[in-house]
Write a protein that binds this DNA or RNA. Structure first.
Lengths: 248, 248
DNA sequence: ATTGATAGTTGGTATATACCAAGATATGAA
DNA sequence: TTCATATCTTGGTATATACCAACTATCAAT
């Protein structure tokens, strides 16, 4: 994709080996020889087929993944990703945060929970001191069985004693209010597009894109004191956020 | 960020070397020791500093780049990236307005403009009849020379006679107000993650991710009548959106 | 049929080495 | 001062090798 433009025939520098191998695989995918969710050659297999070293083959496959043609399932192997076009990526299942709130078929899985000492980032967000105790829990949200988001929430432990003994398979804002009288009033959200780690991608299932939306949120109580910091990774196919801006 | 929660100490597998090196660099960037556009240690230098091999150092730096902390200038070296452009969509619909206010080095290129008949989607959004005349224009926005978003806006022609003869290299909301007395008051935005077409990716430059954020927006006037429909594709590395949620 | 150990495959990490080409810099001649 | 040349640094590509941990498939014992 970056040929030098000189005069005549000009070899344009022979394509690097890993790009050649990659191009062949892309060709296979585009032509349909390799179908979505089918296994790609393993690093070692590709190395032998293409007569290149494993590290070079690996680079070709990594690159393929970065461009969205493939995905990985940990040590199970690499597979062809679903093809996507820019407009229909979320048309199949448009999703809003509102829908999530209202969805009946919502299940929440607790991936882990524990207490730890606030690091500098969390401390500054929650306006506590570095080292103060915080509770952290990871949760996986599913709608109709399909994983749509992974959430990490961190709250000030002092304000929510023995929080982890409560049932976390529910709305935590409701829990905060019911059990601790902490009412959330206002918050700040940040939305950006990020690469999804292989680990998280495993949750979203084979064929999900390697990119998704990251939502960071800070929830304040009525006194505008922040008490909860959340980080959510949304499966790109499922994430769609709408905002109503206020009259100026 | 993925601690397993078992019983006591639990080694959680010692962090890979390249991640350790990467974490140190990120720390340096976040703490301000390494400033934007400053050179990062070269692969060989990092290898020596961290007492790891060059390939491992390279992996750390590559990873840093993938996460948006760094960028490369060919063989010149690697540098600390500028922080993401943050845009609070709940307070300012117009990115141009924001750029102006914060004296961001913004340039706008008109890719195309013209009038056409509203299709059913546009007609229903703008509450006009299918076939009614609308103006459409495509614009490319650059900040400090780097393309960050491509926009397509469609407005009701009847309300903005000879709009296309005006200078479109400015904030259109300002133009609407100054020239036509149409004041934008409120709007609705939808943000999602989409694959970027090859055509659009050409604008963002090679090396940008094949995914980005799509923002659809509908702008209403003071009577809450929609008059402008916009669709923006943002380069994922360059942007993030923040939202301030209102007290319930 | 179920279980359980085993061997093979796969990706993940890490190192050492090699050569190339594009930039940057210093050096020396004009 | 200016310009060309040589040298050094930097990333880019490529290979060979090694060991680990997770997963799969197999085959034997129950």
């Amino acid at each position: 994709m970056k040929p030098s433009v000189k005069t005549k025939v000009e070899k344009t520098t022979p394509l690097p080996l890993y790009q050649k191998a990659q191009a062949e695989l892309i060709d296979g995918i585009k032509s349909g020889r390799l179908k979505p969710h089918e296994a790609l050659p393993s690093e070692r297999a590709l190395a032998e087929q293409a007569n290149i070293s494993r590290m070079t083959a690996r680079k070709a496959l990594d690159s393929l993944e970065q461009e969205g043609y493939a995905y990985r399932q940990g040590r199970k192997g690499r597979f062809v990703a679903e093809q996507r076009l820019s407009h229909d990526i979320s048309s199949t299942l448009s999703f809003t945060t509102k829908a999530l709130r209202e969805s009946i078929d919502l299940s929440i899985e607790i991936l882990s929970k524990g207490s730890e000492q606030a690091n500098s980032k969390v401390a500054s967000i929650l306006r506590i001191s570095e080292g103060d105790l915080v509770y952290t829990y990871h949760r996986l949200f599913r709608v109709a069985g399909q994983a749509i988001l992974i959430e990490t929430e961190t709250v000030v432990a002092e304000r929510f004693p023995s929080l982890l003994e409560h049932d976390l398979q529910q709305s935590t804002t409701a829990l905060f209010e019911k059990e601790y009288g902490v009412q959330s009033s206002q918050g700040q959200l940040t939305v950006k597009c990020v690469a999804i780690s292989a680990e998280n991608q495993a949750y979203f299932g084979s064929g999900s894109t390697p990119y998704g939306m990251e939502v960071e949120l800070i929830i304040n109580d009525v006194s505008l004191t922040p008490f909860c910091y959340g980080q959510q990774i949304w499966c790109s196919e499922m994430a769609e956020f709408t905002v109503l801006t206020q009259p100026a």
